[in-house]
Design a protein around this nucleic acid. Structure first.
Length: 771
RNA sequence: GCCCGGGUGGCGGAAUGGCAUACGCAGGGGACUUAAAAUCCUCGGACCGUAAAAGGUCGUGCGGGUUCGACUCCCGCCCCGGGCACCA
């Protein structure tokens, strides 16, 4: 509303992210079909939005569970399939036994489901569809430079960590006694390789069983391996779990030094990162240090601090992990760490036992869900042609209704023969449909583009519309979206750009992370069951009061423990404003309150001056609070102060011309209009205006009206306030100083002391520093 | 462990190096009223001081620093919230 008053063409849309598990679970619990349950919720929420006057553009309303929306999810899927961005593979997945479905990596929190905080995620092997978000890892990282201005730093940091780029080298350790492919390790500190005491393998390392076969004691080792693999701790516990390992009986050869080093299995080596094998350098890695201490592996110092001495191996209490200078490192001794890394990597490449490599923590996005209430994946399986995408002209693949929902670990769609059995688009022979549905984060990854063209039935949107509106000027959302939704959306924009649909690569220019509203110390949410109904508040106090109070309670960036203490104050205030207007409206009804550009405050009465100044000073700060700072609570406080001043000057119409009196009241109403639109419409009409506030501009701030003639200057002695004087504008520093020193009380206090210095801040303060 | 936020009256919070506690809530006192509601006026950081004033000292998580002057900037801690976490 404020931006519209400022003359902007504002697109303020609304839509319903309406697919997903909660609807399905509620349907199972209550015996209502998900669509019915979902749509009745939408009706209710829509009524609330309308009641509160949120001024959404309802012509652009969308709902992701409708075929006219989700067909475009399917369309994007097919585009990705064509381009090799969608692929299917048997993979270990996170499985939530409560949800009975797969979770994306992003949906696993502390080793548990993001919805079921106490349910540990299991690992299962299932055929899954993936989207190749990792193809964009570098770009997702690099383009964050564009977002530095408009995005909160913490969100960027979280995304950067999530992508987790690290540069290093992959180095081969040949096995010394067996005929087998060399072990490959990934390291970011190849400069420490002369300090290697062992090669450590993950318990899940693929060549492990072949490696230990035939080694004495291999049966015991297999048992030990089995138990290590079974341990399925929460990620958080994993980080603090005790380090355990055993020697495999095999040896590898350090390609740089030629040294023979033992190969160990260690529980803390991650299988899914790098190569699943690392080099163990106890002197320069804290984890290796702890492991080596426990198993008495040798410790060899190969890096020393730049301005220190070589620490004695037997006196080290922890690993020295920083960069420094190489020592005991053959031909590389004496090089600084970064130079050593560069040279050793180059040499490894030249001698073909290693190469530079960059790894990422980001993994491809698994989008298959074994549940009903989502977008069907538009693929059929044919005995002859294999995996075949559904042709575009057959979209949407409709989600069948009247399906028996079981909530058990496979998609209910597999039990719907009419859906399941189809013909192959290629050969016309019998085929079956994919029965998994898409992760609902697909729905929310591109929905905002649809707002520009919500009813297009031959494309997700007309690129020309997107060209006009995008990138989004201002996106608002909770911090919980920092990684999941906001990284998927950025990925989607890049895919759409590569499809030639859009010109830009970043969908959101400015992001505002609002605080979470809490109740009883937890985020207010349906799943916690601690939601305070907005309708009840509106019922009791009116929706303008409710709107005002939610803005007044705290700045929007802040988390807020919800309480309705204080809403009475907003209610009282709006009543006072109403009475003020009601009091003056009859006499001012037919007056033109538009002060001309040439209106000169010099000729105004004292009361006119006082109130016009207050009004325009308020206007200046309120405008800034709305536009720049987003501190709606303090803008409301300012408007209250302005009202208080008007109230204190009553009856001001006696000392103010009617057009001035009217303008003063109009300014109050206009500043409140974005906050409490309904009452302001009424007040505006009472003041004699027809046609409503719809096309009324935000009032123009006038410096000349806001300007003070007199200023209160604080007099300090040694930084403590000791007096105040009134000075007129334009008084020189010297004169201000003079006046301050002539003040009776100051004279008295300064008397007899030596003045070391006097600081004058024009129109504000004089500080007299006594020695 | 690392990275972000945050810590101000009884409460929500204000103050972008210049009068700390604006605005509002709750509370005390008063006016109006037969009474209540509503409304209006008024007082509220702590301590010392005073018959009451006037004054004074301390005070924005703790300890230092920079500055004429610090809630604000710098350094070091503590506590709370969030994120990442055996990523080699």
């Amino acid at each position: 509303r404020f931006k519209r008053m400022r003359g902007f063409n504002v697109l303020h849309p609304i839509g319903w992210d309406s697919f997903g598990l909660p609807a399905e679970n509620a349907a199972i619990k209550n015996g209502i079909p998900p669509r019915q349950w979902t749509n009745s919720n939408i009706q209710q929420m829509k009524a609330t939005c309308e009641r509160f006057g949120f001024s959404y553009d309802w012509r652009r309303e969308i709902s992701s569970c409708e075929p006219d929306y989700y067909r475009w999810n399917q369309w994007f899927f097919l585009k990705m399939l064509e381009r090799g961005l969608a692929y299917r593979k048997l993979s270990k997945v996170n499985w939530c036994p409560q949800c009975q479905t797969v979770l994306a990596n992003e949906q696993v929190v502390d080793g548990c489901c993001w919805r079921h905080e106490s349910t540990a995620v299991e690992i299962r092997e299932i055929e899954q569809w993936f989207w190749r978000i990792t193809k964009y890892s570098d770009e997702l990282l690099a383009d964050m430079a564009e977002l530095k201005e408009g995005w909160p730093e913490r969100v960027l940091v979280m995304q950067e960590n999530w992508i987790g780029k690290s540069r290093g080298a992959r180095v081969q350790f040949a096995l010394s006694e067996v005929q087998a492919a060399p072990l490959e390790v990934f390291t970011t500190r190849v400069d420490t390789i002369y300090g290697v005491s062992a090669v450590l393998l993950s318990p899940h390392h693929p060549s492990l069983s072949a490696l230990i076969a035939g080694v004495p004691g291999s049966t015991a080792m297999s048992e030990q391996l089995d138990s290590m693999r079974r341990v399925n701790l929460k990620a958080a516990d994993l980080a603090t779990a005790e380090k355990v390992g055993f020697f495999t009986g095999r040896f590898g050869l350090n390609p740089f030094s030629g040294e023979r080093v033992p190969v160990w299995v260690a529980n803390f080596v991650l299988a899914e990162y790098g190569t699943g094998a690392v080099m163990c350098v106890p002197a320069h890695d804290q984890r290796d240090f702890e492991f080596a201490q426990k198993y008495r592996l040798p410790l060899k110092v190969v890096v020393q601090p730049l301005n220190g001495t070589v620490p004695r191996a037997d006196q080290m209490e922890q690993a020295f992990t920083e960069h420094g200078r190489s020592v005991n490192s053959g031909p590389y001794s004496g090089l600084e760490s970064s130079a050593a890394i560069e040279k050793m990597t180059a040499d490894a490449e030249a001698k073909k036992f290693g190469e530079a490599e960059t790894t990422y923590r980001l993994k491809d996005w698994g989008i298959s869900r074994q549940r009903y209430w989502g977008t069907p994946i538009p693929v059929v399986y044919c005995k002859k042609d294999g995996v075949v995408g559904v042709p575009e002209n057959q979209l949407p693949v409709r989600l069948p209704e009247n399906v028996v929902l079981t909530g058990e670990g496979k998609s209910p769609l597999a039990n719907v023969p009419d859906f399941l059995n189809t013909t192959c688009p290629k050969c016309g022979g019998p085929a079956t449909r994919e029965t998994d549905t898409m992760d609902t984060f697909v729905d929310s990854s591109w929905y905002f583009y649809r707002y520009t063209d919500a009813h297009n039935d031959h494309a997700p949107y007309d690129p020309a519309n997107v060209q006009y509106w995008f990138p989004i000027d201002q996106y608002i959302g909770g911090i919980e979206h920092a990684i999941l939704h906001l990284i998927y959306s950025r990925f989607f924009a890049k895919v759409m750009r590569d499809l030639g649909l859009i010109q830009h690569g970043e969908p959101v220019r400015r992001l505002f992370s609002q605080g979470m509203v809490q109740k009883g110390g937890r985020a207010m949410s349906k799943s916690h069951g601690n939601v305070v109904g907005a309708d009840e508040m509106a019922q009791k106090y009116g929706c303008d009061t409710a709107r005002m109070y939610t803005l007044f309670a705290a700045p929007p960036a802040k988390d807020l423990e919800w309480s309705e203490d204080g809403i009475e104050g907003c209610s009282r205030f709006l009543n006072k404003v109403y009475r003020l207007v009601d009091r003056h409206a009859p006499s001012l009804h037919s007056i033109d309150g538009n002060l001309s550009e040439s209106f000169d405050i010099v000729h105004a009465s004292a009361k006119e001056k006082l109130l016009l100044r207050k009004a325009h000073q308020t206007l200046k700060r309120v405008t800034n609070d709305f536009e720049v700072r987003w501190h709606f609570n303090s803008s409301i406080a300012l408007i209250m102060e302005y009202y208080n001043e008007m109230q204190a000057q009553e009856p001001f119409e006696q000392d103010a011309r009617p057009e001035v009196a009217k303008r003063l009241i109009e300014l109050l109403v206009l500043m409140l209009a974005p906050i409490t639109p309904h009452i302001c419409e009424e007040l505006w009409e009472m003041l004699g205006h027809s046609g409503g506030l719809r096309r009324i501009s935000w009032p123009q701030f006038r410096e000349d009206l806001a300007k003070e003639e007199q200023f209160e200057v604080v007099i300090q002695i040694n930084g403590r306030v000791r007096g105040k004087i009134q000075v007129e504008d334009g008084l020189s520093d010297a004169e201000t100083k003079e006046r301050a020193l002539n003040d009776q009380r100051i004279k008295h206090l300064v008397h007899g002391s030596a003045v070391a210095k006097i600081v004058v801040v024009p129109r504000k303060l004089v500080n007299i520093v006594l020695r």
